[in-house]
């Protein structure tokens, strides 16, 4: 079998089992191309570059020497806070400031999907942020309660009042 990137014989064979169809995706490369893509570590360590492996399996299969230039989609984004360009981030691998996550959000989402198979945080939230949410929720409920009272929907207003009391009584630390 030939390497999918050059005319050499393929000696490295990767198979990815995916749930959707096609069930199996195969990549075949020669040793040189595999090394170029960081799939084989230089030293004899048990460490395989997982990111490179995933990148190859998840990314579109494109020989590097293909005739037409590869249209690499690097969005022309710049962070207004720190001035970092998205392409700079792609070259260096490090973001410049917290606001980059806002400025580059659209470009970061697919990247995070590839790295983490997820785009949304599920875990600890700073207490200050939690308090902020709670206050916003309470404000919203109070507004609704007033509206219900004004519309003489007293049953609904009473339900909301109880809900507000309950929320206000709960410990705000967690």
């Amino acid at each position: 079998m030939k390497c999918q990137f050059c005319p050499n014989e393929a000696t490295v064979h990767l198979t990815k089992i995916v749930k959707a169809t096609p069930r199996k995706q195969e990549v075949h490369l020669c040793e040189t191309c595999a090394r170029e893509r960081n799939l084989i570590p230089d030293q004899a360590t048990p460490h395989v570059d997982l990111k490179a492996l995933l990148g190859l399996l998840l990314g579109p299969l494109q020989p590097q020497s293909a005739g037409k230039p590869r249209a690499v989609e690097t969005p022309a984004l710049t962070c207004p806070t720190c001035g970092l360009k998205y392409e700079q981030f792609r070259a260096e691998g490090r973001l410049g400031c917290p606001d980059d996550y806002v400025a580059f959000q659209s470009a970061l989402e697919p990247l995070l999907e590839r790295i983490h198979q997820a785009q949304t945080h599920l875990g600890k939230v700073p207490a200050a942020v939690r308090r902020g949410h709670r206050e916003a929720d309470l404000k919203d409920l109070k507004k609704k309660m007033k509206a219900a009272a004004k519309a003489e929907n007293y049953e609904e207003a009473a339900r909301l009042r109880d809900l507000i009391r309950q929320k206000e009584a709960t410990d705000e630390s967690r």
């Binding site: 691998g93 490090r94 973001l95 917290p98 996550y101 959000q105 970061l108 990247l111 995070l112 790295i115 983490h116 997820a118 785009q119 949304t120 945080h121 599920l122 875990g123 600890k124 939230v125």
Partner: peptide, 13 residues
């Protein structure tokens, strides 16, 4: 959405 932000996106969340 992204949680605790970090210099490298491999640590975010």
């Amino acid at each position: 959405q992204f949680g605790y932000v970090t210099a490298c996106p491999t640590n975010v969340g």
